[in-house]
Design a protein around this nucleic acid. Structure first.
Length: 659
DNA sequence: GTAGGGTTAG
């Protein structure tokens, strides 16, 4: 099935290419007196013996304006002259000059030249003028494979996936055969679609064509195919493509590592990286590979692994590129080592908006909202324009720190001061900011008034806040929308059941749990992990696999007695079942994060910070127990949950019990 | 004359 949609741009097919002033065209004589800068006149004139050569020479120097001054004096501009003019306009990013060249080319009868049409399509694509590229394509009668591939590339780069696939269907219908380039563009078109409807089936259909036409051995096509499946989170398909590739190179390995890193399988990403180091003797990982590996380390909070990779990057001299440095900043921040993140950032001799965003979000997840705002403002004062992601980072930081007024101010400054209209993600941040701060009505009215369709993330933020502040009515409203939008996301049902449990509405808890069972949904079970002496240990609730499990349980029972003696009673709210208090306490003692903390206490030295990561939100009881342990055992404990960091020190948590 | 993998958020 092909999805069809007429693009908006087709409604106005004739685009304004201005007419060349005729008096200029009439002056077709040798350029004996042309007003050029003295230095240019000298150097260009020495090399050029004809006007065509002079124009070409000026283009090669990037002087498109001067080349255009000379152009009217050339009676017979050649294809090569136009080619260089087009390339120069694209390189100089000059749209007005591009239109002049295009007009001139039409006037001189070159508009049906497929070679120049290809170049024009590429030029308009680079100038972000996809409508003009499409018009060139529509007008050219002789469509070579270069012309077709150029428009597929342009549409794909512009994110017009549906339009590209629509045209690709036409291409096949007419009887053209895809080559290796067409296949890569068509596959990419499936993932860049602006539509909410998944084009995975189109991708699978193209895969079928590739298979039947014997392109399954082509490394570029296969790598793009692998990447397409990964972008649709179809990891098993991506793996199969990777495994069946007859030849692999650094790009195919990197693509597979990135697929794991981006799809919640950081362990596999790291394992594959190491396998690559062991198995591949003809090539080494490059900077792109290491960026994905750093991302995996950050996702795992695997600080010592991250440091190892950092060492490797330095030894190989891969640290000169900005993406590697930004990835290092993120890795250190996500691994809980903000000092190192700041150190890497400080040592950067050049920074772009992404480097700043990395640091801002780092401060955000650690709960240092004011510092994140300070960095955001410093970035602007240094002349770096904030991107939409900068606002997500800084608004997220406000949300974690409860900085409602500052968050509102920053949100309002988006359009007024920076010309960025808020996207769904920004509204989601505001719902989160207000909701967490128990301003649930305000959060709900943000959703009602927003000009965009609130997606599942926005309703999810509201439901999350309803869970924190136990608002049954609003939770029911948010979840009914979420059940429509994401019927298979078990997390939403769990959140609603949490709200009912807290309100002691046990019949409703049962009803929601039955719904989960009847829909055969898989709840994500809590999992925590800890890195001890460069090894990762993971824990699930009621874990019997760890050889030290008895020792861990004994320690937790001892600590819980100690807590009770000091008047700290267990918080049984997080237990969703209607059980007696003792049974609830027993369940609470089996929570994965407590097991990991106890394991850390047993297996690390007194001065070491215990670093734990959890795949879900930290539960209230585990939070208060960890706070107690940090004082009682005099240990610094760092816990990263799905949202943010908690630094426990001397009985206090950095989140101020606000998370 | 065209091609594959990577950085920031939630």
């Amino acid at each position: 099935m092909w999805a069809l949609r007429v693009p908006q741009t087709f409604q106005n097919p004739v685009l304004p290419i201005p007419n060349k002033p005729r008096d200029c065209a009439a002056a077709a004589k040798p350029p004996d007196t042309i007003n050029l800068r003295p230095s240019t006149t000298l150097t260009a004139a020495v090399i050029a013996t004809t006007t065509n050569q002079l124009i070409q020479s000026l283009c090669k120097r990037g002087n498109v304006k001067q080349a255009l001054q000379v152009l009217p004096h050339e009676e017979n501009p050649t294809q090569r002259t136009y080619e260089l003019l087009i390339l120069c306009c694209a390189l100089q990013n000059s749209f007005s000059d591009a239109l002049t060249v295009h007009r001139h080319l039409i006037d001189n009868g070159f508009d049906q030249d497929p070679f120049l049409a290809t170049k024009l399509i590429n030029m308009y694509s680079e100038l972000d003028c996809i409508e003009y590229a499409r018009q060139v394509f529509d007008k050219i009668r002789r469509r070579t494979m270069f012309v077709w591939n150029a428009i597929f590339r342009a549409l794909t780069l512009a994110g017009h996936g549906i339009e590209a696939l629509d045209l690709y269907r036409e291409f096949n219908r007419i009887g053209y055969c895809s080559d290796r380039f067409t296949y890569t563009y068509a596959l990419k078109a499936c993932v860049v679609s602006e539509s909410l409807v998944s084009l995975l089936n189109n991708g699978k259909e193209i895969h079928g064509h590739i298979f039947r036409r014997g392109f399954e051995t082509h490394i570029h096509v296969m790598t793009t195919l692998l990447d397409m499946y990964a972008k649709f989170s179809c990891l098993s398909y991506a793996c199969r493509v990777f495994e069946r590739m007859p030849v692999r190179n650094v790009v195919s390995w990197s693509a597979m590592i990135a697929s794991y890193a981006k799809n919640g399988r950081p362990f596999d990403a790291l394992n594959l990286f190491y396998e690559m180091m062991l198995e591949c003797h003809d090539f080494l990982p490059n900077s792109v590979t290491t960026v994905s590996v750093l991302q995996a380390c950050g996702n795992l909070s695997a600080l010592s692994q991250g440091k190892l990779i950092h060492g490797y990057i330095l030894r190989r001299g891969l640290d000169s590129l900005l993406p590697v440095k930004s990835a290092l900043v993120t890795m250190y921040a996500r691994c809980g080592d903000l000092e190192s993140a700041q150190y890497v950032f400080d040592k950067m001799n050049k920074r772009d908006v992404i480097s700043w965003n990395s640091l801002i979000s780092g401060y955000g997840i650690h709960g240092f909202g004011a510092k994140a705002i300070q960095m955001f403002e410093e970035m602007i004062s240094l002349g770096v324009a904030p991107s939409p992601v900068s606002f997500i980072s800084v608004l997220g930081a406000c949300s974690h720190a409860g900085l409602v007024i500052e968050g509102k101010r920053l949100f309002n400054s988006m359009v007024k001061q920076h010309g960025i209209s808020p996207g769904v993600e920004h509204y989601g941040c505001m719902v989160d900011l207000l909701g967490r701060a128990n301003r649930l009505d305000e959060a709900a009215s943000i959703i009602e008034d927003m000009p965009l369709e609130p997606g599942p993330k926005v309703w999810g933020s509201l439901l999350g806040s309803c869970r924190i502040h136990c608002n049954v009515k609003l939770a029911e409203r948010a979840s009914s929308r979420l059940f429509e939008l994401e019927p298979n996301n078990a997390g939403n049902y769990v959140l609603l059941a949490d709200v009912y449990a807290e309100a002691k509405m046990w019949d409703d808890v049962k009803r929601v749990n039955k719904l989960v069972e009847s829909r055969e949904l898989q709840k994500v079970s809590g999992c925590s992990w800890i890195e001890v002496r460069r090894k990762m240990y993971s824990f699930k609730s009621v874990d019997e696999l760890n050889p030290q499990i008895e020792q861990i349980h004994a320690l937790l029972v001892k600590l819980s007695k100690e807590m009770k003696e000091q008047g700290c009673l267990p918080n049984t709210k997080p237990v969703l079942y209607d059980l007696d208090s003792e049974e609830k306490q027993r369940i609470l003692l089996g929570h994965s994060e407590k097991l990991a903390v106890a394991f850390g206490l047993i297996n690390t030295s007194k001065r070491e910070t215990i670093r734990i990561t959890k795949n879900l939100r930290l539960c209230e009881d585990c939070h208060s127990v960890t706070r107690f342990i940090s004082k009682f055992a005099n240990r610094d404990i760092l816990v990263r949950d799905v949202n943010r960091y908690h630094h426990f020190h001397d009985g206090v948590c950095s989140c101020g019990d606000y998370w």
